[in-house]
Design a protein around this nucleic acid. Structure first.
Lengths: 188, 188
DNA sequence: ATAAGATACGGAGGACCCCGCCACTTGGCA
DNA sequence: TGCCAAGTGGCGGGGTCCTCCGTATCTTAT
């Protein structure tokens, strides 16, 4: 089990870098063939490192997702629980709306997949990271009853998906998030 | 300009029927080739009747969209403006969540397209139909300031997109709609 | 330093899809 | 009935995804 061959590790890194650019340019449906071409490897090598498209998407976004997770940990013991949650949700929204392909990745990794392993899925990781924030805010009565962290992540994913087309997705998504948090049709 | 030839009209209807089934079965990315095959026509005939995929999606869903629009008209002078809006939004959500491919169609038709004509787009039609409901509810103070009918349609589209994977999309979407309307993280 | 073995590579080939072209058929009108 | 435009279908080109398999390359032990 000597970890991995040196060239394999190089190709992996190369593919990741190219994939990030390519996904940013052409969305989550970017051509794997094209990624292989740009990276200067055979198309089989792509699927060797990333069996399905989802695996590639996960890997590409893993880093930034981690950043958001640690952001959540930092905010976990802020004074104002509600403000902390809101800040985190806004950060998440901004990132989801500005990073092409991410929202699709977030929904896709919830899709039923032959292999059961969802533990590495971006959406799951994010939900778990946000859970403490939601819990604390809920204890302060600042969260709608029945709403979970996963729900909020799902809502934000939806907003990001639905605003992908918009001229200024980030601003639009943030605005819609505001409506969603405050209540678009609040009870009189 | 004698409207259309009889066989053309037949093929059009046939394609629409087949496309509906095929999209229900395989989502908005259903193969046009396959649709042609099942309908027993050449693949060129499909694109003759529906230049882009979006045109086909629009045509397939037009009927039900119309139903929702007339529903909006019926509700336009209900006693309780808020209740009327909520009912319409719930109906829209249920339909969007239960009809595979519709949510995608709703987002796609907002995408920039070579030809400018968006006037027939499903999302636009829906937004316009819902506008009176929103206006009346807003006058009653039941809608968040700044929220438009288009915003609500967008939010619902997002919810439908994000819950497509879920085991029970309709129930999940309805629940999330409830959160969105009432406020997921309401101001203390 | 080198040879052996495991590991990773890349290209070929099949299946599918979208798309544009063009010769041909078919329906409607005189 | 015969003409002609409207409508059709199939073919070929270009692209993608995916799998298989012979081969090149890295690693480790000698």
């Amino acid at each position: 089990m000597p970890a991995q061959r040196a060239d394999a590790r190089r190709n992996h890194a190369r593919l990741l870098a190219v994939a990030e650019e390519e996904i940013a340019a052409h969305g989550a449906d970017a051509s794997l063939e094209q990624i292989a071409r740009v990276a200067g490897v055979g198309s089989a090598t792509v699927r060797r490192h990333f069996p399905h498209r989802r695996a590639l998407l996960d890997a590409v976004f893993r880093g930034r997702i981690e950043t958001l997770c640690s952001r959540a940990r930092d905010l976990a013991d802020a004074d104002d629980a509600r403000a902390a949650l809101v800040e985190w949700l806004r950060a998440l929204t901004e990132y989801a709306a500005s990073t092409r392909g991410l929202a699709v990745a977030l929904t896709r990794d919830l899709e039923a997949l032959p292999d059961a392993g969802h533990e590495n899925a971006c959406a799951t990781v994010l939900s778990e990271a946000g859970e403490p924030l939601v819990r604390r805010a809920a204890e302060a009565g600042a969260v709608a009853p029945g709403a979970t962290a996963a729900d909020l992540v799902t809502l934000i994913t939806g907003i990001a998906l639905a605003t992908e087309h918009h001229p200024d997705p980030v601003a639009e998504a943030d605005r819609l998030l505001g409506l969603t948090m405050a209540g678009a049709v609040p009870r009189g």
